[in-house]
C-alpha cells in the first residue's frame, strides 16, 4: 500500500512540476499561449513514443538500445514509400509500417530468448542492423509524407461549444493519448500485462508460477517495436521527411523512463509517469530557450537535472528501505 502511495506520489509530483514549469514559462514569456503549447506537444510526440517503447521493455526487466534506430528505419520507410505516391496510398503505408515495427520488435525479443545473450547486447547489435537498414532504404534525409497525415497533428481538436478549452487541446495531444491508451489500458488490465510486470520483477518466480516467460518477453519487445514504429511515423509526420540517422531518442527515452519512476531493474512503474516526465524535460528545454540561454549550456543543464533527479530518487528509495 505504501509503495502504491509512493508511486502515485511520484507521478503526482511530476504533474505538479509540469504545472509549475508551465507557470514559469508564462512568467518568462507572457505571450505564451495555446499555439506554443501545440508546438510543444508536436515536438514531444516522437519522444513520447520512444519513451513508451522503452517503458514497456524496462518494465519487463530489459532495456532496448535500438529504439532510436527503430524509429529511424520506420521513419525512412514511411517517407520513401509515400514519396510521389497518392494520398490514398498512405492508408496502406501506415499499417504496413506499424506491422513492420511489431515484427522487428518481436525479432528482437526472439533473439534475446533464443540466444540467451543479455538484452543490452542483443539490442546493441540490432541497433547496428536497423541503422544499417535505414541507410540502405534512404541514404540521405528525404522522402515525403501525405498531406492528410500531416494534418492529423497540426491544429487543435475542436470541441463544439467550448472554443476556449479546445484551443488548448492540440490534435497531436489527442493522437498521442489515443495511441497510447488503445494499447496500454487493455494491456494493463489483461493477464498479459500482469505477466509483463511479473517477469520484470523476478523471472524465476514468474517461471515457477507458470508465466510463459519467453512468450511474454517476445510480446513485450514486439509492443516496444510497435511504439517505436509510431514514433518513426510521428517523426515523419512532424518533419515531412525521413532521416536515416536517429536523433537523441535513446538517451532521452532512458532518462524519461527513470525520471518517470520506472525502476531499471523492471517490474515497477507505469506509462503515465514517463510520459509526464518527457513533457517536463521538453518544457525545461523550451524555458531555457526562452531565457535565451546558449543551447550548449542547455545540454549541460539538462544532463545535470537528469543526474540530480536520478540521484535524488535513488536516495529516497534508500531512505525508504532503511
Amino acid at each position: 500500500m505504501s509503495r502504491l502511495i509512493r508511486r502515485q506520489g511520484w507521478v503526482a509530483g511530476l504533474l505538479v512540476l509540469f504545472v509549475v514549469l508551465l507557470v514559469i514559462t508564462k512568467l518568462i514569456q507572457p505571450g505564451y499561449g495555446s499555439g506554443d503549447f501545440g508546438s510543444l506537444v508536436r515536438a514531444v510526440l516522437p519522444y513520447a513514443f520512444a519513451v513508451a517503447a522503452q517503458t514497456i521493455v524496462v518494465i519487463a526487466g530489459g532495456i532496448d538500445l535500438s529504439v532510436g534506430a527503430m524509429m529511424a528505419l520506420t521513419s525512412v520507410t514511411a517517407a520513401s514509400m509515400m514519396d510521389g505516391a497518392s494520398e490514398e496510398y498512405a492508408l496502406f503505408v501506415v499499417p504496413f509500417v506499424l506491422a513492420m515495427g511489431l515484427v522487428l520488435g518481436a525479432v528482437n525479443g526472439m533473439l534475446i530468448v533464443v540466444t540467451r545473450v543479455p538484452d543490452i547486447v542483443v539490442t546493441l547489435a540490432t541497433l547496428f542492423v536497423l541503422q544499417g537498414a535505414a541507410l540502405l532504404v534512404l541514404g540521405a534525409p528525404g522522402g515525403a509524407v501525405a498531406e492528410w497525415l500531416r494534418a492529423t497533428i497540426v491544429g487543435t481538436f475542436p470541441i463544439p461549444g467550448l472554443p476556449g478549452i479546445s484551443a488548448w487541446i492540440p490534435k497531436a495531444l489527442v493522437l498521442l493519448v489515443v495511441c497510447l491508451c488503445i494499447i496500454w489500458i487493455p494491456l494493463k488490465r489483461s493477464k498479459l500485462g500482469l505477466s509483463i510486470y511479473a517477469i520484470g520483477s523476478s523471472e524465476l518466480a514468474a517461471f515457477r508460477s507458470g508465466v510463459p516467460v519467453a512468450r511474454t518477453k517476445i510480446i513485450a519487445y514486439a509492443l516496444s517495436g510497435l511504439f517505436g514504429a509510431m514514433g518513426g511515423l510521428a517523426l515523419t509526420m512532424s518533419t515531412g521527411i525521413g532521416a536515416p540517422i536517429p536523433g537523441p531518442y535513446l538517451l532521452a527515452s532512458v532518462a524519461a523512463v527513470v525520471l518517470g519512476g520506472v525502476a531499471l531493474g523492471g517490474g515497477k512503474g507505469g506509462l503515465l509517469g514517463p510520459i509526464v516526465a518527457v513533457f517536463v524535460l521538453r518544457l525545461v528545454r523550451t524555458d531555457l530557450t526562452l531565457l535565451a540561454i546558449d543551447p550548449n549550456v542547455t545540454a549541460i543543464i539538462e544532463g545535470a537535472i537528469m543526474v540530480a533527479v536520478v540521484m535524488f530518487g535513488a536516495f529516497i528509495t534508500m531512505r525508504g528501505r532503511q
Partner: peptide, 20 residues
C-alpha cells in the same frame, strides 16, 4: 554512494561532458 544505475549515471555525465 547514491546507487544510481551505472548506465544512467554514465549516460548523464557524458551528456554534461559533451555540453561543457
Amino acid at each position: 554512494v547514491f546507487r544510481v544505475h551505472p548506465l544512467i549515471m554514465t549516460l548523464g555525465t557524458s551528456l554534461i561532458g559533451t555540453g561543457c
